[in-house]
Design a protein around this nucleic acid. Structure first.
Length: 220
DNA sequence: CGCCAGGGCCATA
DNA sequence: TATGGCCATGGC
């Protein structure tokens, strides 16, 4: 068995293990693509519970128009629970202005070349690689793999030649998985949920984590 | 109380 | 290009 086959089997096996344990998560938890975009900004280095409070503060009226028409002080007050509110208020306006160039039309974004959209998003203040890929995948349904701290951490615990930075890990997953939006969607979701539940930074392993059972089996 | 969460920007070397 | 400081709330 060559290296590529082994890597593909391993990635598939990790996926199967997580899927069997957590099921199909149907991410992203949001009521609209625009809410995905807002959530992607607000959740940067922030616990999801705080993001939920912030989104709830919009009172069900979360929309591009609401964000663009709100005053800065008002917007800050709404998103306060999500932290970093001085920066994030500007980020939300910036990404919403980007979306306005597509007339807030999800289908219009989907019709554009994905690499161009990704480049545009990366040029928006406050949108780095993870945030851009989260929006591409979860707001617009474009198959691109989302990497986060949990993903990099996971790769470090397995005999995977995935690398240790965003681009390397992203390329690795995309090269060794079927280019399927559904799989990309749930794989990242599963990694995040498992990470939140078990493998946090201060608690790198535990007995109930389905992947840690595999780790110990493999002597890692 | 300290740690850290589904990052990203910026200054510095 | 690669670190390190900074941003800030809230749960555990």
């Amino acid at each position: 068995m060559n290296a590529t086959t082994r890597d593909r089997d391993e990635l598939q096996s990790i996926y199967d293990t997580l899927l069997a344990h957590y099921g199909d998560l149907h991410w992203w938890p949001a009521k609209s693509p625009y809410e995905v975009m807002v959530g992607a900004i607000l959740t940067q280095n922030t616990a999801w519970g705080n993001v939920e409070k912030a989104i709830a503060n919009f009172g069900g009226g979360l929309s591009p128009g609401a964000v663009l028409s709100a005053g800065r002080a008002e917007l800050i007050d709404i998103i306060r629970p999500a932290g970093f509110f001085n920066q994030k208020a500007g980020y939300l306006v910036a990404v919403t202005e980007w979306f306005s160039r597509y007339s807030f039309d999800v289908e219009a974004v989907r019709r554009a070349p994905p690499e161009r959209v990704r480049g545009e998003l990366l040029s928006v203040r406050g949108v780095g690689q993870e945030t851009a890929d989260s929006m591409l995948l979860y707001a617009f349904g474009i198959p691109t793999f989302v990497v986060d701290a949990y993903t990099v951490r996971l790769c470090g615990r397995y005999p995977l030649s995935a690398g240790d930075n965003y681009t390397a890990v992203k390329s690795y997953f995309e090269a060794n998985l079927p280019r399927c939006e559904k799989v990309f969607n749930n794989y990242h979701a599963l990694i995040v949920i498992n990470g939140k539940t078990h493998c946090r930074k201060s608690r790198p392993s535990c007995d109930r984590c389905p992947l840690c059972a595999r780790c110990s089996k493999q002597g890692i």
